[in-house]
Design a protein around this nucleic acid. Structure first.
Lengths: 160, 160
DNA sequence: GAGCGAGGTTCGGCAAGCGAACCCAGCATG
DNA sequence: CATGCTGGGTTCGCTTGCCGAACCTCGCTC
């Protein structure tokens, strides 16, 4: 019984795969956890280090990578009576990773729960819970992978 | 200018964070790419190894982890005239990671594109493109993190 | 000019990832 | 029977990455 239709013999250009590309940017250890903190409003090196418990050297490297990739920006600021420091803020490119983080969180809430979820997201306007959904452009809600057909579309897919 | 409301002083129990928990299961190198292939219908060791180019030892370890965690199941099968072999199939727990994969793919398509996306997903029923959306339980579409409030809710959050 | 604290860098050790080589069961072939 | 082939691994050295701890530095305050 074939559940999922293979992508026309599973032939597509994996070297251009967007999943792999995204993971090349945010797939190293700690990167996504740094972004989680960023979405929670944590911006300073010391606060990140404290929240995550990651080694400083690794954190330095991850922040530099994320800045280089344009996911975070490193911006100077000064509190009064202190010298200038830097903080790390999400760019639009970074904020666009929000659905990914929410999806990871939702999966953990569902499958790894040993109690109530430690963090709930609610819509600022109406207070209702926020979740990720798979939808199609005709407005249907998509139940899962079985309802989806993957089609190789990039250059190189149309070789006979 | 504070864009995101910090989670009540960013105080929540990070040791129970579902993002971290999920990454502990699927966050190692290659794991999510193995799942990408699984969603494309690839099930056999040799095919996975070929598609991914990962070292066999690493692939062996990742598959064992995913099976142990219940994301994949290892099932015997036999083709006629061949000896019994095993294949790796998504469980429900594994299929539930689909939105995560789609979210990663969508981000790559948007921000790393150097041409048309190599793979497009379409709704099997209507043919329209499939994407991930953030929605709230009242049915509103959520634009982004600025419209969401994160609230620490687990045990330990209500300490004064 | 001594002390301090944020934001790093450096260092030595351990773990993980890497490609290549090897292994092994079982079917097929001579 | 011997021989080879093939899928599904395991083993082996090497390199890269992660780790904690220690150290450094700049700009501030006292």
């Amino acid at each position: 019984m074939v559940i999922l239709t293979p992508v026309s013999d599973a032939t597509f250009d994996r070297s251009r795969c967007s999943v792999a590309g995204t993971l090349a940017v945010v797939g190293e250890k700690w990167s996504l956890l740094v972004l989680r903190e960023a979405f929670l409003g944590v911006r300073r090196f010391a606060d990140l280090q404290q929240a995550l418990g990651a080694p400083k050297a690794v954190l330095t490297d991850r922040l530099a990578t994320l800045v280089r990739e344009g996911v975070l920006s490193r911006e100077p600021y000064r509190a009064e009576g202190e010298r200038q420091r830097h903080e790390y803020r999400l760019t639009e490119k970074g904020r666009d990773l929000y659905p990914t983080l929410v999806a990871l969180m939702a999966w953990g809430d569902r499958w790894l729960a040993d109690g109530p979820p430690p963090l709930v997201l609610e819509h600022r306007d109406c207070g209702a819970a926020v979740r990720v959904a798979l939808v199609c452009d005709d407005g249907h809600e998509v139940g899962g992978p079985r309802e989806v057909r993957a089609r190789a579309a990039g250059a190189g897919a149309e070789r006979a």
